[in-house]
Design a protein around this nucleic acid. Structure first.
Lengths: 158, 158
DNA sequence: CTAATAACCTAGTAAAATACTCAGGTACTA
DNA sequence: TAGTACCTGAGTATTTTACTAGGTTATTAG
């Protein structure tokens, strides 16, 4: 499980899409300006996001990018793995001899940690992420449970 | 919160130390061989771990490295931050103007995610990590709770 | 229709981080 | 006092990151 600035760029851009999800497609030029990320760099990142079917590209005037699913159905883990080519679970796994068993032990341990981090990030959706911020400002009087699901967003896409 | 191969190397090495914690100091040469990490690279990593007082170096014959604290008192988060110079919480925070508020929004959101990941990794100790594997093999008949604390290791260090 | 728009694609490149090597030095202990 | 093993720093190859440049293709507003 790799987690670097590159993943942050992708998540940031996806959050931008999620925020403007109701208003139709967002152009990369807009994201580039508002988030301060290079346009061509964004194009490269979105090429991968598109291949993993997290976003849909719409060409021509009035076009842009749109989330392929609802914000509450896309997890941070999905975005990061889409960018970073997934989890690389060590090199020993099946290839090497695993000399003293020692080597494989720590590898297995680390793989498990990677899985745990993935599961953790998989529980955080784009919607839950934005909600926690907006809800605090807009809806304050409502009692809120520990559920991370976004409450009022049952508008189906396409 | 950066999380890359470098951190994995450090955690792996620290796990090695934790496993042999009862048997006295472990030399970097041993870790180098068993884990397949370059000796000089290990020395660089351990220089940082030592500065953050996670390990203690013992010179001379029979020397090596030892954990400065008990395995159940060292978290994975500590190891990673010791290596990677801590969390870099975006660049905008206080310096930039935060033009439309939009920019700062995602930054705040991301900072929160970083903190959550940190808290998550902070809850995982070296001991809890190893225990879960060894316990499964050695002690099987015992009923185990959800507690991650290592049960039988109340031997004080130094 | 056509011209503007914006996605899409490919290659290259500077800067940084990573992983490692080399060459010494220093402290400890047997 | 010799040897072990920590410790330091400088240098380097590789990889990743972040970006630039220059195009092509599809779409649509006018």
């Amino acid at each position: 499980m790799r987690l670097s600035t590159k993943g942050r760029y992708a998540v940031t851009a996806m959050l931008d899409l999620a925020i403007h999800h109701a208003e139709g497609p967002v152009t990369l030029a807009e994201i580039s300006e508002s988030q301060g990320i290079s346009l061509s760099y964004l194009e490269q990142l979105f090429a991968r996001l598109r291949k993993h079917e997290l976003v849909v590209g719409l060409r021509g005037p009035g076009g842009g990018y749109r989330l392929s699913r609802r914000p509450q159905d896309i997890s941070v883990a999905e975005v990061i793995t889409a960018i970073g080519e997934g989890i690389d679970a060590t090199q020993c796994e099946g290839k090497e001899n695993c000399q003293e068993g020692e080597r494989c032990l720590t590898h297995v341990l680390w793989t498990r940690l990677g899985n745990e981090i993935y599961e953790f990030l998989n529980g955080i959706t784009l919607a839950s992420f934005i909600e926690r911020d907006n809800v605090n400002q807009v809806i304050r009087r409502q009692q809120q449970g520990l559920d991370v699901m976004a409450p009022g967003l049952n508008k189906t896409v396409a």
